[in-house]
Structures are given as C-alpha cells and as structure tokens.
C-alpha cells in the first residue's frame, strides 16, 4: 500500500518534471530563435541590398569599375558613375573629423578632468541629451543659419556647399564624441593620475601624457563612431549639400554625398536606376563595414 503510494507520487513528480524539462528546453529554443533574429536580419539586409545592387553588373552590361570611377551620373541617359559622390562623402567626413574631433576630444577631457564638478554635472548630461536630438534638426539649423551666413557674409554664390556640410556634420558628431570619450577618460584608474602627479608631472602634463594615452582605445572608438555617424547621415546633409554632381575641388563647391544620392532619387527611380541606387548603398555599406572592422579591432585591443 505504502510503496504503491510513493510510486504514484514519484510518477507524478517525474511527469511534472518531464513537463518542466520540456518547457525548459522549449524556452531555450525560443530564446535562441530570438537571438538568431539579429543574424537573420543582418543577412537579409546584406542579401537584399547586395542582390539588388549587384544586379546591373551581373545581368546587365554595366561595369563595376566605371560605376565606381565614372564621373557622370545621368540616370535618364543610362550613365551611372558615382566617383563625385565617393569623393564628396570622403571629403565631407574627413572635414567634419578635422573640426569635430579636436573640439569634441578637448571638451571631453575638460569635462572629465578639469571642469569643476558642478559644471560637469550639468554640462555632461546636457551634451548627452543633445546626442539624441534628431539629426534633421541640425540640418534645419544649417539651412537657416550656416547657409545664409556663407552667402551673405562670405559672399559665396551657393551657401549649400562642402563647407556647410562639414560644419553641420562636425556639430552633429560633437555630442557622440564628447559623451563616449568622456566615459573612456573617466574610466582611467585614479592611481595612474596619482602616480604621475607624485612624480612631479604637472596636471596638464599628466592629462596628455598619461590619462589620454591610457584611454586611447575608448577615444578611438568615439572617433570611429562619430565618423560612422557623419558618413551615414542623410537628411541633415540633403538640406545643406546642394546635391551638385561635380567632383568637389574647393570647400565652396556644392556636393552630393553617397547617402544624399540615395535619398534624393529613391522616390523617382525605377529599373536600372533603382538598382544603381542600391549599388550606391553597397559602396556606402562597404565604407561602414571597413569602419566597423577598424572599430572591432580597436575595442578588441582595448580589452587586453
């Protein structure tokens, strides 16, 4: 009697356990599926963009080289060359880098090391907040202030120009660079500073010779992220770029970066023209992948 009873209980328990284990297994499968979704998304994105963009070169008789190095972009006459846009994208991004990085980095150093605590406590979160402002608004500001300023005060015929794009992008990447670099600098152990100061190095000397080098990987990450943001920015840039199809030779030329080309013509494109916009996307994508690769290397190094 008693043994039978225990047997029943045991059976029930093992039944319950079986169910429990089943749910355990099932749930871990569901979790895995969710995690795989980002892989699937990435594959889909890469797949679709590349499939669409590669089509004219694979099935049509367009040459990829003349696409990259061609300087004429006249879709209605079947001429697709994006060299001016590649140059424009590189110039604009580099220009923004030259202005944005030093200012952003110095601001980060200031906030982390020199600023009175009360100041940093207000300014840091405020700048962090600015990183979240829709980038379009930077473009609105650029069109309302920077473009007329260039036209009226510097006498440019076109305010929509490379320099306007550079300024807007530099301003836009500031919050990103400041926020990330500041975090990196703050993460440097106090002992580094104390050691250096104890050796008689001045405060400024300590900052630039000890603290900044120690935070190097974080700072580089900040720069690369800022770069990515500048390279990928679209709507703010359309408003101030002018979108001319020339290879820029001076800061005052109107330019059309890669991103702008896509957004500008996407609505109007069909057939090969549409596919060529996807091909433009591939080129942009490749630049970003290179940047990401660099970033991955930098952060991996930082880990050691």
């Amino acid at each position: 009697m008693a043994t039978q009873h225990t047997k029943e209980v045991e059976q029930q328990i093992s039944k319950g356990n079986a169910r429990k284990y089943f749910f355990e297994k099932l749930s871990s499968k569901i979790f895995l599926a969710c995690a795989l979704l980002s892989v699937i998304s990435l594959l889909l994105i890469v797949g679709f963009v590349f499939y669409k963009g590669a089509n004219p070169f694979v099935t049509g008789d367009y040459s990829f080289l003349s696409f990259i190095f061609g300087s004429e972009w006249v879709p209605s006459e079947d001429k697709f060359g994006i060299f001016p846009m590649i140059v424009a994208s590189i110039y604009a991004t580099m220009g923004a880098l030259v202005i944005g990085v030093p200012v952003g980095l110095f601001t980060a150093i200031f906030l982390a090391e020199i600023a009175p605590k009360r100041v940093a406590k207000i300014v840091s979160p405020a700048i962090q907040l600015l990183a979240g402002i829709p980038s379009v608004l930077y473009g609105v500001f650029g069109l309302a202030i920077i473009v007329p300023f260039l036209q009226d005060n510097l006498g440019l015929a076109r305010g929509q120009s490379l320099i306007a794009v550079i300024l807007v992008l530099a301003i836009m990447m500031l919050p990103t660079i400041v926020t990330i670099a500041e975090t990196a600098i703050r993460a440097v152990p106090k002992s580094y500073r104390e050691g250096s100061l104890a050796l008689g190095v001045s405060e400024i000397g300590t900052i630039f010779k000890v603290v900044v080098p120690a935070a190097k990987s974080g700072i580089m990450a900040a720069i690369v992220l800022g770069l990515g943001r500048a390279l990928g920015e679209t709507m703010a840039v359309i408003l101030v770029a002018g979108n001319s199809l020339i290879i820029p030779t001076s800061l005052t030329d109107s330019i059309r970066p890669l991103t702008t080309n896509i957004a500008l013509e996407m609505g109007y494109a069909a057939g090969t023209h549409l596919e060529m916009l996807f091909a433009t996307g591939i080129v942009l994508f490749s630049f970003i992948l290179i940047l990401n690769f660099v970033l991955a290397r930098l952060t991996a190094k930082g880990g050691h």
């Binding site: 929509q160 359309i238 979108n243 001319s244 199809l245 020339i246 109107s254």
Partner: peptide, 8 residues
C-alpha cells in the same frame, strides 16, 4: 551645368 544645385 554640372554644378547646378539639385533640389528634390
């Protein structure tokens, strides 16, 4: 003309 501003 190549340096025309293009507006959408």
């Amino acid at each position: 003309i190549k340096n025309a501003i293009v507006a959408s």
